[in-house]
Write a protein that binds this DNA or RNA. Structure first.
Length: 297
DNA sequence: GATTCGTGGGC
DNA sequence: TGCCCAAGAAT
């Protein structure tokens, strides 16, 4: 089981000083951090986030930027579709929500790139709402401390009910949630949990003698040789050039399987991450800036 | 529910 | 070294 007092006391002294947790950070900037943190470690997000919010502090500022500049600023954080969706999300908030990040979970869920986790994280961490927030850390901590299992089952809607039952009734609920995530990220980690320094004195998993799990929590995703790697190579070439790139320049980025290379380039076009110019060359989508009001002729 | 989508660090 | 994993979302 999880003792709220133990968890909150621990968090008060052990929390990391992450920039998006500091006072004065806006809801939009918290939302940006959540986009970047989707499947990406804190250490890699931190420098990108700092530059990003200094450059584009509001949804409208982000929306006014060119998509290509957004993709470049995203750099090698990975899953560049997140950058595109963040740009789209900024546009919707700027144009349809008065440049104010919605507070309502259901409204947040309707925005591009925002799913179950991110909608609740924004409602909870930016607007201090008492809603359950469930990420991979929370699922693992609950699996161990509450259910006595080494790893969480596949994500399901039941996780939300699980955590809802644990949430304190008062206004400490958001801190409880961030503390649960922090514990999973720094102590109750997937591979080498530091049970010796864990603040929870009633962990079911420990009381059962740390029963082993049944194997990898998730199916291992190969990377080398996959379409993701090829797409990454192609996009890396385009990020590095402010002018359109010829087909030949892209071809050298992946030579072992030309059919795969062609398929991946096509998928980048379909995803709207890459565009083809009239002369047949290629560039990041939205190159040259945009969202400039049409000039009167 | 199962897959796909980047990238890099730790062990 | 190779495998595992990292504040998920969309399809």
């Amino acid at each position: 089981m999880i003792d709220t007092g133990e968890l909150l006391d621990w968090y008060a002294t052990a929390q990391r000083d992450l920039p998006w947790r500091r006072p004065g950070v806006s809801a939009w900037q918290i939302l940006v951090s959540e986009f970047m943190l989707q499947q990406t470690p804190v250490a890699r997000v931190e420098p990108i986030w700092l530059d990003w919010v200094a450059r584009w502090p509001t949804p409208s500022a982000t929306a006014a930027a060119g998509a290509a500049d957004v993709l470049r600023a995203w750099g090698k954080l990975g899953y560049p579709r997140r950058a595109k969706r963040l740009h789209e999300c900024a546009t919707v908030i700027a144009t349809e929500h008065g440049d104010v990040v919605p507070e309502d979970v259901d409204t947040l869920l309707s925005l591009p790139g925002i799913g179950t986790y991110t909608a609740r994280a924004v409602a909870c961490f930016a607007y201090r709402q008492r809603v359950p927030v469930v990420d991979t850390n929370v699922r693992r901590v609950v699996a161990r401390a509450v259910h006595g299992r080494d790893d969480a089952a596949a994500a399901s809607t039941r996780d939300l009910d699980d955590v809802a039952a644990l949430l304190p009734d008062d206004d400490t609920a958001p801190t409880f949630s961030v503390a649960l995530m922090e514990l999973g990220a720094t102590v109750c980690t997937a591979r080498s949990p530091k049970c010796g320094v864990c603040p929870l004195s009633h962990c079911t998993w420990r009381s059962l003698g740390f029963p082993a799990g049944t194997g990898p929590a998730r199916k291992v995703q190969k990377y080398a040789g996959t379409d993701r790697q090829v797409r990454g190579r192609l996009l890396d070439v385009l990020r590095g050039s402010t002018s359109p790139v010829s087909r030949a320049e892209l071809d050298v980025a992946w030579t072992t399987d030309t059919a795969q290379r062609d398929r991946c380039l096509d998928s980048l076009l379909v995803d709207g991450l890459v565009e083809q110019t009239e002369d047949g060359r290629f560039a990041l989508a939205g190159e040259g800036g945009e969202v400039r009001p049409p000039s009167a002729v």
